[in-house]
Design a protein around this nucleic acid. Structure first.
Lengths: 225, 225
DNA sequence: TCAGTTTAGTGTACAAATTACACTTGCAAA
DNA sequence: TTTGCAAGTGTAATTTGTACACTAAACTGA
């Protein structure tokens, strides 16, 4: 179609994806981080990442990388930002696109995670990360918080069925502030796409708590931004 | 530092930036678009774009590209998204990062724009664009609208000093809906970082309208979101 | 000079949304 | 049967957002 010479006078670069993998447990957000037992930056902490391959879209690369580490498919992932400073990777020039992923922390493949020398680290205890990964985490967290304020994305961090107390604790963790229980439940009650399953969770209280579920069809029908 | 072999087994890609350049005139948002008199896709409409060069960051590349076209420096620009589908450019594989820029439409360099065969096109009249540039415009517009709702970014589309009527017309154009004049002025009055200059604009009314200015120091001091 | 035209500028009442706040219920274990 | 524990529930006050119409100033042209 076009003369390939048009493109070939311009440089090419490695393209990578780095994934900020969020989990939720014990009332706190966690990240799945690698203590790198491989080069470059062996021994240091980093995000899970990987290079984009021929014929693979950025989104697919990000998905592949998270699946490689967790064994999970069907992930909620969103692109955050692309980092393109010439010296951001001290080895060679690499353009890296950050994605965040939301994961049900009960479900990941422990073997795969162990094999990668990866660990869930609670947010306040995040160690210093290599390159510009600290900044990626900041940006992803800000973006995820924004999205959680306007869409029920956080639900992807919980199991299929969850109690309202779990949901509230999750939102407190995401937003970083306590929420009034009655106001919270009033708001949830007004969302018809969060519906009672009729089943009861007995693990965390003697009385038992009603289990709820996210109804995607009802939600998509409403599309309140 | 690291063995370069680590990187070299992975493919490299062209990296481009494409810029959604917004202007504001006669109560409407416009985009600065190219009617391409060069390959590829000669004859079709596209965004202004360019390849990322060695040693140049993504942000710098986007800035350079907009400056090449408009002669303007000191631009308000934000990264929108990176598009990485393998076949998005039918010529060769190119990863493209979209940026939006806000430009005072009174100030650009007409010679440069003419030389590039570029034209300001009002939003509702945007033609079909090449590749995935339509989607880039959609995404940029959505992102810019969101930002305009929470920060006074739109002010970058106006001259240094502006009347409240201009500002209201701008926000009506950005949000795509009419705004009540009294409520609008009430809201602006509560923002101490939009301050009267004491000067009067006589061009658009016999009575004359007070000129206002954005005070960055006061705004940064407040950091409301 | 006076009537007409044009845009700037101003306040109040109502509705809606958000916030603050404390006790009762049901169940199981001791 | 008593105790402990988390689940579940309503109302009043405040804040925020929305609807709405006239006067003021200055120039123009008859």
């Amino acid at each position: 179609m076009e003369p390939t010479g048009y493109y070939s006078i311009h440089p090419k670069f490695h393209a990578a994806v780095d994934c900020i993998i969020f989990g939720f447990e014990e009332g706190e957000l966690s990240l799945l981080l690698l203590q790198r037992n491989f080069e470059p930056a062996k021994g240091q902490w980093s995000l899970m990442g990987g290079f984009v391959e021929e014929g693979e879209s950025l989104d697919d690369a990000a998905r592949r990388v998270v699946t490689e580490l967790t064994g999970l498919d069907d992930l909620y992932m969103r692109q955050v930002h692309t980092y393109g400073e010439p010296d951001r990777d001290p080895g060679e020039r690499v353009l890296s696109t950050a994605y965040y992923a939301l994961v049900d922390i009960k479900k990941y493949d422990r073997e795969l995670v162990r094999a990668h020398n990866a660990f869930w680290v609670k947010l306040p205890a995040i160690p210093r990360l290599i390159f510009d990964h600290d900044r990626m985490v900041d940006d992803a967290l800000r973006f995820m918080r924004y999205q959680a304020r306007v869409k029920p994305v956080g639900i992807n961090l919980l199991p299929e069925e969850f109690t309202l107390t779990q949901l509230q604790t999750l939102y407190e963790a995401i937003l970083g502030e306590p929420i009034d229980k009655r106001n919270f439940r009033k708001r949830i009650a007004s969302m018809d796409y969060i519906e009672k399953t009729g089943r009861i969770d007995k693990t965390s209280s003697r009385k038992g708590a009603a289990l709820y579920r996210f109804n995607r069809e009802k939600y998509d029908g409403n599309f309140k931004i």
